[in-house]
Design a protein around this nucleic acid. Structure first.
Lengths: 246, 246
DNA sequence: GCGGTCACTTTGTCCGGACAACAGGTTGAC
DNA sequence: GTCAACCTGTTGTCCGGACAAAGTGACCGC
C-alpha cells in the first residue's frame, strides 16, 4: 500500500489530463509531500481514485520516470527518487532559468546586428557562408555579477528584435512568442580557459576556467532556428542534468 | 505520403515490439535510409503494414521523439530531424562509449582500495562520513593518449572488483553484471584548470582547461550505488547532448 | 489574386480490456 | 531451518476503439 498524493484533475481545462496528474505529482515531490523512498499508490488505485483510465495515469507516471523523479519496478510498485537537480536541462534560456530561481538576471546587449554568417554559424544553421543572419551578443549577469557571454545567430526571417526586448526577456521566450516552435536542441559542452577579451567581459582573470556550450536549436519543421555559442564562468556556474535509463 | 522504412518485427523475440520498431527506424536514420527532412508514413499506415496496433507504433515513435531523432506535428505527419549527435548522454561509462565508437579505450587503474568515505562522497552516497566504501581511481586513454581521470566511490556491498576487470571493462558494465540496476544518474558538469597533479596525469600543461563531471547514480530502489568525480582534457573531449521539448 | 470554407489527413488524448512478467510474502513439506 | 510452490499485487506490453485538434490543400466566390 502506497502513498496517495493529493491530486485533482480538471476535465474542463485544455491541459491534458495526463499532464495535470504528472505536474501535481511532481509538485508533491518538490514540496516534500512525497519524500524520497516513499511508494506511490498502484496505477490502478490512482486511476480509480481520480476517475481516470490506467493508460492515462501510466502516461503521467511515465513522464516523471523520464525526468528521473520516480522509478517503477514490475511487481513491486513506484517509488520516489532522491530530490532531483536544481536545474534540469530544458529548452529554455539562461535568463528564464535565473529568473525562475529568483536570481535577478540582467542582460547587457553588446551587439545586435544583421551580419554575414561566419562559417561555423552558417554550417550549424545549414546556410551558405556569408548568408545574412541576425547576430546577438549579450553579457548576462546574476545578482549583479557577470556570469556568461552569449553569442547567438538567427537565420532570417527573424522576429523583430530590439535591445530592450533582449535585455528583459530570454531569447527563446522571444522566439516562441514570435511563433517559432523550438522542439529540439543539440548541445556540445566543453571547457576552455579565458583569453584577455573574455576575461575582461566576465571580470575573471586571464586563464580562468570557462564552461562552453554550443547549441543548435531546431523547430518542428526540422529547420535550424538558432545557433548559439556561450561561455560561462566556471567559478559561478555549472550544468546539472539527470540521465535516465532508456 | 511518407517514406516507409524497411522494418520487420519478430513476435517470438523477448524484445518488446515497440522497441524493435524504434530501433529499426533509428537504424534507418543512422544509415541514411531515412534522411533529414524525410517524412515517415502515418502511424496508421506503419501499424497496418507491420500488423501492429497504433498505440504500439506510437510508443515506438515516441521513443524516437524523446531522443530528438524525429518530430511529430498534428495534421502534418512525422519528419526526420537532422542527424543526431555522435555521443548521446546515456547511462553508460566512458569506456563503453569509446569502445562503441572504435577509439581503442585503455585504462590504468591507479587505485583500488577499501577506504573510509571522504565527506563529499559520503554525502553523495547518503552515508555517514567515514563509512567504508570502495574507491577506484583510473586513468582512461583513447588512442594511447590520456583522456580522463575518473574517481569513483562504491558503497558496500560491492561486487568483486579486480584491477584486471576494471582495466578491460566499463564500471557500469561491471555493476550491471553484478545485478545492480542503475536507472538514473544526476550529473553536475563544470570546468576547472589543471593543477600540477592533474596536469601530470593527463599530460597537459598546468592551467589547461578541464571539463569536470560529478555524478551520482541510483538503482531502482532509489539507492545511491555510485558516486563519481571525473576530469577530462577539454582539448580532447566534449559532451554532446540532445535536449527535447517536454 | 485573395480570402474563406470545407474536406481530408494526421497526430493527440483518452478509454477499457487482456494477458505476461516480475516480485514478495505465505504456507507446507521435508 | 530450508526450500519449493502458490498466491497476490503490481507494472509491462499489446490491442481495438473513439473523438478532438491541428494542418493542408482544393475549391469557390469576390
Amino acid at each position: 500500500m502506497g502513498i496517495r498524493p493529493r491530486i485533482e484533475v480538471d476535465r474542463s481545462s485544455p491541459i491534458p489530463l495526463y499532464f495535470q496528474v504528472a505536474e501535481q505529482i511532481a509538485e508533491a515531490i518538490r514540496t516534500g509531500e512525497l519524500a524520497p523512498g516513499d511508494q506511490l499508490d498502484s496505477e490502478v488505485q490512482i486511476a480509480e481514485s481520480l476517475g481516470l483510465s490506467r493508460p492515462t495515469v501510466r502516461q503521467a507516471i511515465g513522464h516523471l520516470v523520464d525526468r528521473g523523479m520516480i522509478v517503477r519496478r514490475r511487481g513491486v510498485g513506484t517509488q520516489i527518487l532522491p530530490m532531483p537537480v536544481r536545474r534540469e536541462m530544458e529548452l529554455t534560456s539562461l535568463h528564464d532559468d535565473l529568473a525562475r530561481s529568483g536570481r535577478a538576471p540582467a542582460t547587457d546587449v553588446l551587439l545586435l546586428a544583421r551580419v554575414p554568417a561566419e562559417p561555423e554559424a552558417a554550417a550549424a544553421l545549414g546556410l551558405a557562408a556569408g548568408t545574412p543572419v541576425t547576430k546577438v551578443v549579450r553579457l548576462r549577469r546574476s545578482q549583479g555579477e557577470p556570469l556568461a557571454v552569449m553569442r547567438n545567430w538567427l537565420p532570417e526571417p527573424v522576429p523583430p528584435l530590439t535591445v530592450e526586448v533582449l535585455e528583459t526577456r530570454g531569447l527563446y521566450e522571444v522566439l516562441r512568442k514570435a511563433g517559432i516552435r523550438i522542439c529540439v536542441a543539440r548541445q556540445r559542452i566543453g571547457a576552455c580557459t579565458a583569453d584577455a577579451e573574455q576575461a575582461a567581459l566576465l571580470e575573471e582573470r586571464r586563464g580562468a576556467a570557462l564552461l562552453t556550450m554550443e547549441r543548435t536549436a531546431f523547430d518542428d519543421n526540422g529547420r535550424a532556428v538558432e545557433f548559439g555559442s556561450h561561455i560561462y564562468r566556471a567559478s559561478r556556474y555549472s550544468l546539472e542534468v539527470t540521465v535516465t535509463e532508456h
